[in-house]
């Protein structure tokens, strides 16, 4: 059964009127790790941001766990977002807050606004945050400020924050672009590991084809806003790759 079902998605930028996505359809099933590959400017980041409507699509349908995301009111959308974990290229941490506060911010959709203003989170959340920080290997950095950590450690904080949400889907946007190759592989391994442990499907943008084929179970190839490939990782051959990256080869 498809957890996420996207059909005929199109996005046009308000400023230039350029069509960033044109009629993209795909689905993500339970237990899947889907990688979206394609040259820069193909619309990968936009596609991922449509799923939780950080970018408003112009047309199409997004169905997540049987619910129409595009039809949601602002209030309903916030409730849906709290179950969609997101991991970012540049980590998007609150630099001046501690690692613990950053991880706890993953619970903001669950706690009341007034307690959250005073950074009041239930003990259960703090306990869970400590467990998750242990899992991602940051137990020694709980009270450090986020900007005191290295790139790889900061991305682990980002992953921990997403896990705090009890996500039913993980959206991952170029998680390794700000990291060196060795750390990149570690971070990808960690994402795959937690996805299996917590049984969350992953939709991940990644321009590094090697990492994509190594970690994903399914690949979506995007070029200039159009989906030109969708299939299991094994089905992605040399010819298909050349097609997806045609513009870069030239």
């Amino acid at each position: 059964m498809a957890i996420l079902d996207v059909s005929d998605l199109s996005v046009r930028y308000a400023g230039t009127g350029r069509e960033v996505l044109r009629g993209v359809s795909f689905s993500v099933d339970a237990h899947e790790f889907v990688a979206i590959i394609g040259p820069s400017g193909a619309g990968k980041s936009t596609l991922i941001r449509c799923i939780n409507r950080l970018v408003e699509p112009r047309g199409g349908r997004i169905v997540l766990y049987g619910e129409d995301v595009m039809a949601m009111t602002a209030r309903r959308l916030r409730r849906a977002r709290r179950h969609i974990g997101m991991i970012f290229q540049e980590f998007n941490l609150v630099n001046r807050m501690s690692v613990m506060d950053n991880v706890l911010s993953g619970r903001l959709g669950y706690v009341g606004t007034l307690p959250s203003v005073f950074k009041l989170f239930p003990k259960a959340d703090i306990r869970r945050a400590l467990e998750i920080l242990d899992r991602v290997g940051l137990s020694d950095h709980v009270d450090k400020r986020a900007d005191r950590l290295s790139g790889g450690q900061r991305q682990r904080v980002g992953i921990a924050r997403a896990l705090m949400q009890d996500p039913k889907l993980l959206l991952v946007d170029e998680p390794t672009s700000s990291l060196d190759p060795k750390i990149s592989r570690e971070v990808m391994g960690l994402i795959r590991g937690i996805a299996r442990e917590f049984d969350v499907p992953v939709l991940c943008n990644i321009h590094d084809v090697q990492l994509a084929t190594e970690f994903a179970t399914k690949i979506i190839g995007l070029q200039d806003g159009i989906k030109i490939f969708e299939g299991p990782t094994a089905a992605l051959d040399r010819k298909k790759l050349d097609e997806i990256y045609a513009m870069e080869v030239l």
Partner: peptide, 16 residues
């Protein structure tokens, strides 16, 4: 704007 995007993505309200 990056942390703001992250707080929106976890379902944070305007005040959050």
């Amino acid at each position: 704007p990056k942390p703001i995007e992250a707080i929106k993505a976890v379902g944070g309200s305007k005040l959050q």
